[in-house]
């Protein structure tokens, strides 16, 4: 099922889409958020933002607006 990281629930995982690379900011890509990689939503901060994700061995906090740009297939 196609969706974005922003729509995942805590504990859910997805695989980053090949086609979406250009909508992801370069520095997020550089930190390991690459197409084809598995991404997990670990936690959501109070007031629903930011999101705490694990991707490609990195543990990162990103804001919801960026998460909404990362297109994934839900696993």
């Amino acid at each position: 099922m196609k969706t974005t990281v922003a729509k995942l629930k805590v504990g859910e995982r997805g695989r980053i889409e090949q086609i979406a690379i250009e909508s992801i900011p370069l520095n997020l890509l550089e930190m390991g958020c690459l197409p084809g990689k598995e991404i997990e939503l670990i936690q959501v901060a109070p007031f629903n933002d930011p999101l705490y994700i694990r991707v490609n061995g990195s543990h990162l906090a990103i804001r919801r607006d960026v998460a909404a740009k990362i297109q994934i297939t839900k696993l």
Partner: peptide, 8 residues
């Protein structure tokens, strides 16, 4: 700039 913080 985007907000990206590593959780060490």
């Amino acid at each position: 700039a985007f907000f990206i913080v590593e959780m060490p």
